[in-house]
């Protein structure tokens, strides 16, 4: 088992190095530079420009810049933002909890409803209910989520007034960030109204972000369930006269869960991509928006560091899924 994990880790390292190169190359290939963006339509003094470029170390040859970046990174230093002068890591850590909270809630939403929809569709296979549920799932899967978000805001926030429009919490509540997760921070602050407000603010973004994973999970659950329901042991269980509910929920679902768990793991990447759009629509102060803003501001250290951190996250989750899979299924462990 241990060597298996080591083997997977050995693969991760070159991938990781590759990502540093990719992130560095991408951002430096983008035309324009941070000083120009800062100056905007104002006067550009050549001396001033030169001084700024020197101060930011942007006048050095690219390979040297990469080298500084890489060595800095190995010392745990991702550099500091050109715009705010704050260390990249500390900016990331301030914003990441917001994305994490949103992603977790969206994933819970997607998993709960996705599993339920999948199980219902599988047990009522071929009925109107099955077609309806699966049709809805496919529609969700086909949804341009930015449009979906806008429509939900208009209907539920503006016209019906059920949910707040944007942000993480009503700003009358001044909650000191302790964990950065608003739900937990409000509870730690013993402020139930604030907690309620935080929950209300999470509803729409979670739905929007969870829609596509929900559809994927529902479809996966349905097909996995159908496969399992055909197995001999289910037939045996039926023959033994166990209640159908028990058969479905205990015997079938448990065995159908494995591929579903994998799919959930794989959705993390999709989720982070979706977060970029969802955060833009709901003014959610997370890392998706942060990265997009930084690309347009040419904030090199933030883009490099941010992409690296996000990629690391995805790699780690994939690794975790891999390892879990290996734990569950020894055949995979010894392959390759």
């Amino acid at each position: 088992m241990f060597t298996f994990i080591l083997r997977r880790l050995a693969v991760v390292i070159p991938t990781f190095l590759g990502i540093t190169v990719l992130a560095f190359a991408l951002i430096h290939l983008i035309p324009g530079d941070p000083v120009l963006v800062m100056v905007g339509e104002r006067k550009l003094d050549p001396e001033f420009y030169k001084a700024a470029m020197t101060r930011l170390g942007l006048d050095q040859p690219l390979y040297l810049q990469y080298w500084h970046y890489l060595t800095g990174m190995l010392h745990g230093n991702l550099g500091e933002s050109i715009v705010t002068h704050e260390p990249v890591l500390s900016e990331f850590l301030k914003l990441f909890p917001a994305t994490l909270e949103l992603s977790i809630c969206a994933m819970i939403f997607a998993t709960v409803f996705g599993l339920a929809a999948g199980v219902i569709a599988a047990t009522r296979r071929g009925t109107v209910l099955d077609h309806g549920v699966m049709g809805a799932a496919l529609t969700g899967y086909s949804m341009p989520i930015f449009w979906w978000g806008l429509i939900l805001i208009i209907v539920f926030s503006v016209n019906l007034g059920w949910t707040p429009v944007s942000g993480r919490i009503d700003l009358e509540f001044d909650i000191a960030p302790r964990t950065g997760l608003m739900l937990i921070d409000t509870l730690l602050a013993h402020d139930l109204d604030a907690f309620k407000s935080a929950v209300m603010h999470l509803i729409l973004p979670s739905i929007v972000l969870g829609t596509i994973p929900l559809a994927v999970i529902a479809r996966m659950t349905r097909s996995a369930m159908l496969e399992v329901l055909r197995e001999d042991y289910i037939r045996t269980a039926r023959a033994k006269g166990l209640s159908p509910v028990r058969i479905v929920l205990v015997h079938a679902l448990r065995n159908a869960l494995m591929p579903v768990v994998t799919v959930i793991g794989l959705q993390v990447g999709t989720m982070l991509a979706g977060a970029v759009l969802t955060e833009t629509i709901f003014s959610w102060p997370g890392i998706g928006k942060w990265l997009i803003d930084s690309i347009s501001r040419r904030d090199y250290p933030v883009v490099q560091g941010g992409i690296l951190l996000v990629a690391t996250l995805i790699i780690l989750v994939n690794l975790l899924v891999d390892v879990l899979y290996g734990v569950i299924n020894p055949r995979i462990r010894h392959a390759r």
Partner: peptide, 13 residues
């Protein structure tokens, strides 16, 4: 490496 980046973010870049 390419898979490790969220697709939309890569496309934007």
């Amino acid at each position: 490496i390419m898979m490790a980046l969220p697709s939309l973010l890569l496309a934007i870049a």
